[in-house]
């Protein structure tokens, strides 16, 4: 680990200014991902700016029914909040499906969204990786690609986004509040994370110095109140997703009135399955319809074939997981 300095400002604006003044400075929140990357040599900042004194740890309800989650709220506190558990069950379930009790006590809401990929070639500073350096090639494409993307990938990167929380936030149309060098702004969660394209070094649309200050959950629609998160992984706990699904469903008279489907473990960002959602609205809430809808979504899938393990299995896995999850939300056996 290269030496760095440490600062702990008392004002958010000072934290932002500290980064603006130093292109190699980084924010430190819960540290669960950043400390790992410091040790691995994946990031080598000159300065860490601790934002724990400047980000809110409160969850507050706004007049329009929005639930505002301070960026400093620990993941475990977010999942335990009774308003979150009752109104946005997919959000609580997603957090609880991730990491461990200790890590959830440490990790912040803002930091969770900014987690970087768990692609082993990204984490190994000795193997080439375009996400670490645009001068290097992607090692995963012909390597161990079992965990990698089937949707929206590019020649330069097939990494997946590891956050469970972010997948659920996409399904409930959350908004991200950001304080930047030019003031505050709001970014819809669906536009927050990027696809890799030819610059996979950037996971999100944030610019250097942008600080996530809060995440807003809009007043829940019926399909959000009836939502859940389903994570498929090899180990029964404490493992990243092979694939995951955040889904919400409102059925009226046997017909899908509203549906939300977001997929994790399939793309460089949480993947809102808009094709499947459109295909399902107004259709009967049956296994056959669910299957047809997700199959349509996955027509764009481009699985990776690799001698060390490809990911074509994710197509039947996503299909089965989505069908099972929607069936459960419709009152059947999941």
């Amino acid at each position: 680990m290269k030496p760095f300095t440490y600062a702990r400002p008392d004002e958010a604006s000072d934290a932002v200014a500290a980064l603006v003044a130093d292109p190699d400075a980084r924010f430190l929140a819960g540290g669960t991902n950043l400390l790992d990357h410091l040790k691995l040599g994946v990031v080598e900042p000159s300065q860490l700016v601790d934002v724990n004194r400047v980000t809110s740890t409160e969850i507050t309800e706004l007049d329009d029914g929005t639930l505002r989650i301070g960026a400093g709220v620990a993941n475990s506190d977010l999942a335990a909040d009774s308003r979150v558990r009752r109104r946005y069950p997919a959000v609580a379930a997603a957090i609880l499906a991730g990491a461990s009790g200790q890590l959830r006590n440490m990790a912040s809401t803002g930091g969770n969204l900014l987690q970087r990929t768990r692609c082993p070639y990204f984490a190994d500073a000795t193997t080439p990786c375009t996400k670490r350096s645009l001068d290097e090639a992607c090692s995963a494409r012909e390597g161990w690609a079992r965990y990698h993307a089937i949707l929206g990938a590019s020649e330069s990167c097939i990494a997946t986004h590891p956050s469970d929380l972010a997948v659920a936030l996409v399904a409930v149309d959350a908004q991200v509040q950001v304080l930047g060098p030019d003031g505050a702004r709001t970014i819809p969660i669906g536009e927050f994370h990027r696809l890799p394209g030819d610059d996979p070094t950037r996971d999100t649309v944030l610019e250097h110095g942008d600080l996530v200050t809060a995440v807003d959950l809009p007043a829940p629609a019926p399909a959000v109140t009836n939502s859940t998160y389903r994570k498929v992984r090899d180990r029964a706990s404490y493992a990243f997703a092979l694939v995951s699904v955040a889904a919400g469903l409102e059925v009226r008279d046997g017909v899908v009135a509203d549906v939300r489907i977001a997929l994790g473990g399939v793309a460089h960002k949480p993947w809102r399955a808009t094709t499947a959602e459109a295909a399902l609205r107004g259709r009967p809430a049956t296994d056959e319809e669910f299957r047809a809808a997700i199959t349509a979504e996955l027509e764009a899938a481009e699985p990776v074939e690799s001698p060390l393990g490809g990911n074509a299995y994710k197509i039947p896995l996503v299909t089965g997981t989505v069908v099972s999850t929607l069936r459960g939300l419709a009152g059947g056996t999941s």
Binding site: T32, G101, Q102, L103, N105, M106
Partner: peptide, 13 residues
């Protein structure tokens, strides 16, 4: 009072 991982915690923080 909360369980955390000391390996991913910076002492200065």
């Amino acid at each position: 009072g909360r369980r955390v991982l000391s390996c991913l915690t910076l002492a200065v923080a």
